[in-house]
Design a protein around this nucleic acid. Structure first.
Lengths: 275, 275
DNA sequence: AAACGTTTCTCATTAAATGAAAACCCACTG
DNA sequence: CAGTGGGTTTTCATTTAATGAGAAACGTTT
């Protein structure tokens, strides 16, 4: 999604073009054929045919007042299908449910894509809802979210460092880590601890605890978090319980995925309780 | 989704093919290149290229243990995008939230596609959850669900009758209406009442009340429902409240969409309380 | 009803998609 | 460990099928 989407050697041009139509429409703004054709720089005849094709499969639909094109219902169906095929989400869901109910706070499941995370699941907390900007399918920066940091921490440090060269660390709030060196050092800490905290680094009064989920092969495949407003999520003392609950839930999910936490590939960090 | 998806005159073949790959994978079952290529009857070279293209846009991804292909994360992102652009859902969400909280039961928003409904939104009831088979993006038959019936009831009766010719009404439970004549008569009743009941016609002990949502032009664009187990949702007396709550919520949403319920196109059915 | 902007359609050109088949890569098996 | 077989990746020549130009149809506005 977004950007061009690298055209690999074998890509079929029309398909690339069709997908770029979808990606353009993915900002939610409906467009006319002409607008689209200009935006993606494709001849209007071709755009017409692309739209006709997508239309016939319900991947786009036409607003019937204006005739403008928007994404279609088939997108929802694909997502449903994605979810049912997603082993991680399936394993996680009941555990997340329990975690939400015991903490009463909002719980997330997300994966990493480059330097961003994508939310796979969100269970609203039992207090006032709709306060957080996260949505299933939405992206958020990795370097300033609990889930993001815990996932970055599992990746080879040099790799992260080289990827960081491509972006600038935006200072969302006054706790956001914007210094690369500081971030890398922090990630080491996160890795050793086995969990990450987010002290309002992305959204000012949202705090969270996040922990990684491993699969059979020991690879980090996702992470979970519990988040809430700063006045309920305390970064220091009472957190011990929350951290324990979160990491325990993550361990349970990992277990479901076949992860054996006995003898792991990586050496240190296996002495569970060092926080 | 499903079936072939009529190839209109202007459809671009490769794009059709690419989409059929997605549709095949939409059952959640991962496949190898060869399996896919056989299933959709496309030369394996071409399938390879299709997959490469979809892969590069994250619409499909490869399981890294087996190398099999499944739907990818971009599907989630498209759905997110679809939702944010969806005016109906946006207008409905807060009202549904309120309706769920006051009834404490599961609330749905869905639209009609031919003789099936597709769920746009589901808010779980506040009792035990996960009992219903509905999911956002999933389809369900229209003729035996509250939402479905209320939507069918708004369509020209002859049109519905002719569409019904193409399917057989499966007897899901012993209250399912399987006789076409009876169904059509029932739909007239539903239309006049302005709401539909589902007395376990699809899932044995799920009952529901559903009401239609209209847009600016008076067209029926969606429907909402409140559903719960048969021991909590009473079809007769105490229902009056629930029916009133449901239809009122639907009216509110319609209002948000610009519907003026003063002078409506259709004549009768405007004397609200005839149940 | 004229003028404009957009969408739909036709057609000839040729780029780009295609399938056959070869090369390559693994995982098994003897 | 060589040999076999199934799958995947790559090449290449053929020709289909995608393409853009432009014309026609449509609809909206002045």
């Amino acid at each position: 999604m977004r950007e061009a989407g690298k055209s690999n050697r074998y890509n079929i041009r029309v398909v690339d073009r069709a997908i770029s139509v979808l990606n353009v429409l993915a900002d939610g703004k409906p467009r006319t054929l002409t607008e689209l054709s200009k935006e993606i720089e494709i001849n209007s005849s071709t755009t017409f045919r692309l739209l006709a094709t997508l239309l016939s499969h319900n991947l786009v639909q036409q607003e019937d007042s204006t005739g403008q094109y928007r994404l279609g219902l088939a997108c929802l169906e694909l997502a449903r299908a994605y979810n049912t095929g997603d082993e991680i989400r399936r394993a996680a869901l009941p555990v997340l449910e329990a975690l939400r109910n015991v903490t009463k706070e909002t719980v997330h499941l997300a994966v990493l894509d480059e330097l961003e995370i994508i939310y796979l699941e969100k269970l609203e907390g039992l207090h006032a809802i709709g306060l957080m900007s996260s949505r299933v399918g939405r992206r958020a920066p990795a370097y300033c979210t609990g889930i993001g940091k815990v996932l970055l921490a599992q990746i080879d440090s040099d790799l992260v460092a080289s990827q960081l060269k491509n972006i600038t660390l935006k200072q969302y709030t006054d706790t956001t880590i914007v210094d690369e060196g500081e971030l890398l050092a922090h990630l080491v800490l996160v890795r050793n601890r086995g969990y990450a905290l987010d002290l309002g680094e992305h959204e000012n009064d949202v705090r969270c605890v996040a922990a990684p989920v491993f699969d059979q092969t020991g690879k980090t495949v996702a992470a979970i978090s519990v988040s809430g407003p700063k006045d309920r999520i305390d970064p220091t003392e009472s957190n011990h319980l929350l951290i324990e609950q979160t990491t325990e839930a993550a361990r349970t999910i990992s277990g479901q995925l076949g992860y054996q936490n006995t003898i792991t590939s990586s050496r240190e960090d296996q002495n569970a309780e060092d926080h």
